[in-house]
Design a protein around this nucleic acid. Structure first.
Length: 581
RNA sequence: GCACCCGUAGCUCAGCCGGAUAGAGCGCUGCCCUCCGAAGGCAGAGGUCAUAGGUUCGAAUCCUAUCGGGUGCGCCA
């Protein structure tokens, strides 16, 4: 149940009726008419800008329209008061019964409260993480993983049909490097001294791969030329890496629907076929690129290359598809990959990249636009850095010094729930500070704790109520006589709960799960405030001595808060906690 | 040089598909537990929303320019 869309519909009905009666001219564009919570609660529960938006096209004074609209709206039982204010705002105050109805709906819907059909079942592919299978995932990947997963959940909640997908970069030169690095560890496992040359991966995590290679292949590859073992070792090593990456993601609570292999695009004609689709549109040509101005590479020399005319779809320069040795550039398999996603019928593609891939966005969008002939849009979410701290001190990370912090390190130290919540308390394009000590601190400046504490307090009330012999399951609470809820502080809480479906929609449309985290903080804050009022005013406590009916009504309110918190945490992939310890 | 992202309170950041007096946490000052969990709450101080123009009934929000910070810029992914 979304009270805002209901009242929004009511406003539209009223405006239509006014038009039917000639009180308002016909043919007006109502698209900009909004119903929103006012910033200042003194202005009421909701406000509409209808009069101001329509004044000019209708050729009427805003306050005249507002006045007539107010009269009509006031006739609805849900509206307690409608008054014109300021330049033409119409402030609405809802009847207490409207809030009570909302609370009953929340209890009935449970964790599904706030679900929306906004996405209309449109099929969305969210590609995220896509870490190279050359080593363990680090904190940067962790943020991308959490973000992508939460975004996917959020969009599901808002009515989209979502596929979570991971692109395995197992086709490029970097997996050959992995193979050579693993081979040295294989030699090491046979008692030889490994030669980790410059450019190879020195990490200890390959030692066990070397041993596993020995266990599997014995000395078959020892002292053999690279051509004898490269492919086998490469496949073996990437397989081990992916196994580990999947386990790491599982530890974070992330489960992919599809793992897509880059390698599967080679030798199958799929790259050629994607390029052919572009060629049909005369977007492929042989040509010479200009050197970038202001920063010409020292070894620059003009070369004729096979180019994609990405400028025809909004890019700044055309992009090369083939290297001078005739092989594909990294861009070509990416084109084929997105071609495949389009062929699978997605309406919307979302790629979650690191911010250092920002320069790649325009060409990828151009490719998707061309490949789908404008049918499919690609949205790219760029993830900013995570800065790690330990009790206020920045942590220096270095692969060589072995102080490299992996996803596994983070999850083992602070847990998946805390990791996820904290990583979602910042916009994706803003850098994130992650302090290993602060995120575990039990105080109000730790948002994870603060929100969990609010949920735990409600659970505490429910426990106490049960001990007192009250029936407090959701069905019983929904039957309570909510007319006992009249105090402004209680209605403020209900008002905040009512915002949840709105938050879901905006967060889903903008692709910004952090809005959910901020909302949860606000909701928790409202609960804590209300709770403390109960210290001074006993009438506001959830448990009322010798008044089971009043208690039940107030507990229904508390429970509705917990439901909304659970729903929000569910989207973030965080389990609500029943008690703090 | 070009492209993209970002400039909001002392610090870290929300708000940005235009809306009324710009918010939160930290830090600072002063308060509130014989009371459902004070692990919390209340109040106060603190702002040229980088700058200058423009659009609009209305701009932190949209457009343009400038300044400052970050990222990227053919044969790496």
């Amino acid at each position: 149940m979304n009270l805002f869309t209901e009242i929004h519909a009511l406003v539209h009905e009223a405006l239509a009726a006014m038009q039917a009666e000639g009180a308002l001219p016909g043919g007006l564009d109502m698209a900009n008419v909004t119903v929103e919570p006012p910033r200042d609660p003194a202005h009421g529960d909701m406000a509409t800008n209808a009069a101001m938006v329509l004044a000019k096209p209708a050729g009427m004074k805003p306050r005249d329209i507002a006045g007539a609209l107010a009269e009509r709206l006031a006739a609805d039982p849900r509206i307690a008061a409608a008054e014109v204010a300021g330049p033409g705002f119409l402030n609405l105050r809802l009847a207490a019964s409207a809030w009570h109805e909302l609370l009953r709906a929340v209890l009935a819907q449970g964790a599904g409260f706030g679900r929306s059909a906004r996405g209309q079942g449109r099929r969305v592919n969210v590609e995220f993480v896509s870490a190279n299978p050359t080593g363990p995932m680090h904190v940067g990947h962790t943020r991308g993983a959490v973000f992508g997963d939460a975004l996917a959940s959020l969009m599901e909640f808002a009515g989209f049909d979502v596929t979570r997908e991971y692109y395995i970069n197992d086709g490029g030169a970097q997996v050959d490097v992995l193979a050579r690095s693993a081979y040295e560890r294989y030699r090491e496992a046979h008692g030889r001294a490994p030669e980790i040359a410059e450019g190879l991966y020195p990490g200890d995590y390959l030692i066990e791969v070397g041993e596993a290679l020995k266990a599997e292949y014995g000395d078959a590859f020892l002292d053999r030329p690279e051509s004898d073992w490269l492919e086998t070792v490469r496949d073996f090593a990437t397989d081990r890496m992916m196994t580990r990456i999947r386990a790491d993601l599982a530890a974070l609570g992330v489960e992919m629907d599809v793992y897509f292999s880059e390698k599967s695009l080679y030798g199958t004609g799929r790259i050629e076929s994607a390029v052919e689709t572009l060629r049909e549109q005369e977007l492929i040509y042989r040509g010479v690129l200009e050197p970038p101005k202001g920063k010409t590479p020292e070894d620059w020399e003009p070369r004729e290359q096979t180019l994609f005319r990405s400028t025809a779809h909004g890019d700044d320069v055309d992009r090369p598809l083939m290297k001078s040795d005739g092989g594909w550039t990294y861009f070509a398999p990416d084109i084929a990959y997105h071609h495949d996603k389009i062929a699978r019928g997605f309406d919307l593609l979302i790629d979650v990249f690191g911010a250092d891939h920002g320069g790649y966005v325009k060409r990828m969008k151009a490719a998707v636009s061309a490949l789908s002939r404008g049918r499919v849009t690609l949205e790219v979410k760029l993830m900013q850095l995570v800065r790690l701290y330990k009790s206020g001190e920045p942590m220096k990370m270095s692969k060589r010094a072995g102080t490299f912090v992996t996803l596994r390190d983070v999850v083992e130290e602070v847990g998946a729930d805390v990791t996820r919540f904290v990583m979602l308390t910042r916009r994706n394009d803003a850098p994130l500070d992650f302090d290993f000590d602060k995120v575990l601190e039990q105080s109000k400046d730790n948002p994870v704790f603060y929100v969990q504490y609010a949920h735990a307090r409600v659970c505490s009330v429910l426990r106490k109520a049960r001990e007192a012999g009250l029936a407090v399951d959701d069905a019983a609470l929904a039957q309570a006589d909510l007319a006992h809820l009249t105090h402004e502080s209680e209605l403020a809480l209900a008002r905040r709960i009512a915002e949840w479906p709105r938050i879901v929609e905006t967060a889903a449309i903008t692709g910004e799960p952090h809005r959910v985290a901020f909302y949860l903080h606000d909701l928790a804050s409202e609960l804590h405030t209300h709770w403390n009022r109960g210290n001074d005013d006993a009438a506001l406590r959830f448990l009322q001595e010798d008044a089971p009916e009043a208690s039940r009504a107030k507990i229904a309110l508390a429970r509705a808060v917990a439901v909304a918190i659970s729903a929000g945490l569910g989207i973030l992939g965080v389990a609500p906690v029943e008690e703090m310890r």
